[in-house]
Every structure is written in C-alpha cells, then in structure tokens.
C-alpha cells in the first residue's frame, strides 16, 4: 500500500459527500428550475461515488446511466416544454418565523432522540460473507432467484412507457 493512501481515500470520500450534500441543497433551494435539475445531477454523481465506496461499481455505473443520463435529461425536456420557474418567494412575517422556529425545535428534538436510540442499540456485526457481490454473482441471481421480480420490473417499465405516451398524447389537436 502506498504511503498516504488512506489520506487520499478519505479526501475523495469527503469530496463525494460534499458533492452529494451541495447537489441536494441546490436541487431544493434554487429558484430557477434548470439549476435545480443541475443540482439533482450533481447529487446523483455524488451518490454514484457513495455506491462505489459501498463496494458496488455496478450500481455506481447504473446510477450515472439512469439518473444523470435518463432522468435528468427527461426532466430538462419537461422544463423546455413548460414554464416551470418558481414564483418569487414572499416576505416572511413575524408569526410565520415563530412557527418556523417551533418546527426547527421539534425536528432537532426528534433527531436527537433518534440518534440516542440508534446509539443505544448498536448494529449487528457483519457475519462472514458467503457471496462476493460481483457483477457475475448479480447476474446469476437476477436470472435465478430474482427472475420473477426482474420480469415484473420490465413489465412495469413497459406499462409506464405506454401510459406516458397515451397521457402526453391525449388532448393534442391536429393543427
């Protein structure tokens, strides 16, 4: 192992977590919707990195392929076909600020309680892993153990495509 490798790995992990967090914040806070889509794409790239750290390069590839490549591009097409910009945020009054403070306090209390609860129990330690979780093992189990859900997902996607076509086509006049 080269010297400083653990430091480099930690730095990459911190960068990926920061990418995810910044992307998620951009996705929900920005006013222009196209920036929000960009935030979602950034967040998904960060998530792909997290999946890589969780030992699944296959899922990292799928995340980029499906979310960044398909979902974000489709949403951009939806943005181009409509005018989705957010209206200007209105000014906050004192009463609403007070209710917001109450909500934040409740959230903090819930977060604290859940954290205490999680630390009290502790997670079950990992037993010896029987399979290796490689792409080969994934393919074998998709074709044997999980073949029925696999086929059902393909059916769901087919119905979704047909339904999307039917819904988006109805109401369009000939001109």
């Amino acid at each position: 192992m080269i010297p400083g490798a653990s430091f480099i790995i930690s730095a990459i992990f911190v960068a990926i977590v920061a990418l995810t967090v910044v992307g998620a914040l951009l996705a929900v806070m920005s006013t222009r919707i196209i920036r929000s889509v960009t935030g979602l794409a950034l967040c998904c790239v960060g998530l792909a990195g997290l999946y890589y750290f969780l030992g699944s390069p296959f899922l990292a590839l799928m995340e980029i392929l499906i979310y960044v490549g398909a979902v974000c591009v489709t949403i951009v097409f939806g943005v181009m076909l409509s005018e989705p910009d957010e209206p200007d945020p209105r000014e906050f009054k004192g009463r609403e600020l007070a209710w917001g403070a109450v909500a934040i306090a409740v959230c903090a209390a819930l977060f604290w309680a859940i954290t205490r609860f999680a630390h009290a129990g502790g997670w079950v330690k990992l037993p010896a892993q029987q399979a290796d979780g490689s792409v080969r093992a994934l393919g074998v189990s998709l074709l044997t153990t999980y073949s029925l859900p696999f086929e059902l997902i393909s059916l769901v996607l087919l119905v979704a495509i047909l339904g999307a076509l039917v819904i988006a086509r109805g109401g369009r006049d000939k001109s």
């Binding site: 499906i66 398909a70 939806g78 037993p127 189990s141 999307a164």
Partner: peptide, 27 residues
C-alpha cells in the same frame, strides 16, 4: 447483510421504479 448482492438488486429495482415514475409524472 451476509449476501451483498441482495441490496444491489433491490436498489436496481428502486431505480427502475423511479425511472417509471419520472416518465409518468412528466407526461
């Protein structure tokens, strides 16, 4: 989990359902 491929397949199904949801939602 003792079998690391179960979660990956589950997440793959979640991604498929999310893609279907986006298609229907945008239409």
């Amino acid at each position: 989990s003792p079998d690391p491929s179960v979660g990956q397949i589950f997440v793959l199904f979640i991604m498929g359902l999310a893609a279907a949801e986006v298609a229907i939602g945008l239409s």
